[in-house]
């Protein structure tokens, strides 16, 4: 068995273990070291009893303290909710214009609106309101199809666009180029004129101008400045939703004249509380610099 030897050089004994002629010096640790180890073991056993530790077939042991990090989170959330409620009451009472005027409320609403936007709006409008060309309008620019004042935006978020909600924004563009409306040449001329509107020199006196004046100004207004109440976008600027890139720009306009597309947006009143919708309105207004 163990054959303890005395090592002359180090003045210590060996442990008596030997592996292929290699022996191990016994350099003992102090006793307190092992006591600390046992204290840790005892602590661990106490921990098993006090805290949730062991998995069982359909759950886990909960421990005497019944601690759970989920419970901690719930508590934290409660505390946050209470802290938030005073702000939310203020936001509910104030109009969106009042919120924008009050510096502290504005800061709170911008921060809260950013979160709510990320959760609810960015799926379509993109993060930061960048939008998706050909589908969802960009909110970060200064063109507002349904109006860009705080109240307009508030209204749009509350009731949405072209949905079943009775208050929602409604409008529909007629399809030209079918039946007896416009023939292919006229559509082509009209598209040319519409495109020229966004340049600084609209093609005055062109055949398209006459067609535009006759067919389009009812909604898109004189000079193509658009009518916000009808959701008829301005055509006289560089911002296009359904145009496509430079090469296919004209085809995009032709498509919109002949087979118009319409975006829709759900109503958020009822899904989100009034205060959140106000925060969203203020945030979205800030994205585009507002009107």
């Amino acid at each position: 068995m163990a054959h303890v030897e005395h090592d002359v050089i180090s003045g210590q004994n060996t442990t008596g273990h030997e592996w292929d002629g290699i022996k191990e010096l016994n350099t003992p640790l102090p006793k307190w070291w092992v006591y600390v180890f046992w204290a840790c073991v005892i602590w661990a056993i106490g921990y098993w009893i006090a805290m949730p530790t062991w998995p069982t077939t359909n759950g886990f042991t909960r421990g005497m303290l019944e601690y759970s990090s989920r419970g901690d989170l719930a508590n934290e959330l409660d505390i946050q909710k209470k802290a938030r409620s005073q702000w939310l009451t203020k936001l509910e009472a104030a109009s969106v214009e009042d919120i924008a005027k009050d510096k502290t409320l504005l800061n709170y609403a911008l921060a809260g609106g950013k979160i709510a936007f990320g959760e609810n709006c960015s799926a379509c409008h993109g993060s930061g309101g960048v939008g998706v060309a050909g589908a969802y309008p960009r909110l970060a620019d200064d063109e507002w199809i349904w109006g860009g004042t705080l109240e307009d935006i508030h209204q749009t978020i509350q009731y949405g666009v072209r949905n079943e909600n009775g208050e929602s924004r409604q409008s529909e563009m007629l399809a030209f180029g079918t039946g007896d409306t416009l023939d292919a040449t006229q559509v082509d001329q009209l598209a040319d004129y519409v495109l020229s509107l966004s340049s600084k020199t609209p093609a005055a006196g062109s055949p398209g101008e006459a067609i535009f004046a006759e067919r389009c100004t009812a909604c898109h207004a004189e000079g193509g400045v658009g009518t916000k109440e009808l959701g008829a976008p301005a055509l006289n600027n560089n911002i296009w939703l359904f145009k496509g890139d430079k090469e296919s720009a004209k085809q995009g306009v032709v498509n919109q004249i002949t087979k118009p597309r319409h975006g829709s947006m759900p109503a958020w009143a009822g899904r989100l509380d009034a205060a959140t919708i106000k925060m969203l309105a203020v945030y979205v207004h800030s994205l585009g610099g507002g009107k």
Partner: peptide
């Protein structure tokens, strides 16, 4: 510098960065 969007073209053609 704001990254989403990197820039925005405004209706009058000016470029805006946040």
């Amino acid at each position: 510098h704001e990254r989403a969007p990197m820039y925005v073209t405004m209706s009058d053609g000016t470029i805006r960065n946040g």
